[in-house]
Amino acid sequence: MSNHAATMVAHKHPSDVEGAKIGMWLFLFTEVLLFGGLFIAYAVYRSVYPEAFQTAAANLDTFIGAVNTLFLLTSSLTVVIAIVALQKDKQKMAVWMIWATVLFALGFMVNKYFEWSAKIHHGIYPGSPELLADHSKGEIVFYNLYYTMTGLHGLHVIIGLIVFFFVLYFIKRRPVVTEEMPYEILKNVRGTSRLAVVSEKGEELGTVAQLDDKVELVDIRLTYEPVAEKRDPRNFVKLENAGLYWHLVDVIWIFLFPLFYLIT
């Protein structure tokens, strides 16, 4: 089915990579503007409460932030390396690099987990009594934004992880898939009627076309060799689009890091 569909698409706009790219970029635009709304909110509140933002930012751990930045930058590097590897038909290298990306992304999330739980442990989370009682309004806004923006970003990291697992599945999947083949399909394959039919004892009974009512069951064994290590070109597009998405997640963090951790 999927192969059939693919040929039909190709028929409509023969391997139009450019169009697929336009689609992907437009999708990224919507992601940028989704965060964009929050960046507008950040800009507004920072202009309203400049001192409070600095006080609150000083409470965030710059070291953890910087480490996380490095994690994401490096994971971006491993993604592009995976893409190049796939382009050079080096499947194994590509798979390893995607695993590295996944690992860095997990490292990022683990860091984030410790960072958030430390803050929550100190009673700093949206709507907490300590936050509302001991902090100025500007700081409350800062933490609300911090949790919303890094939370949404974290959600995107998780989505990215899931996407990479799918890509891994597609790359590691054997290029030729063995499927059960019902007789209805098999009979349409050209030449089937000329296949020789052999009894269990080994004597020849004639061709499929000559079968009569006496035969109760035909056991068909097909042996074929899958084409090993032949890349499926669609995997490349999948990995590239996953990569584009992942770099966007990186770009957003590149802005989140100084805005929340460094403006002390």
């Binding site: 509140y45 309004k137 609300n144 919303t148």
Partner: peptide
């Protein structure tokens, strides 16, 4: 998470 809530400094 009251980003717009005036009681939490929101606008």
């Amino acid at each position: 998470i009251g980003i717009f809530n005036p009681a939490m400094g929101g606008d």
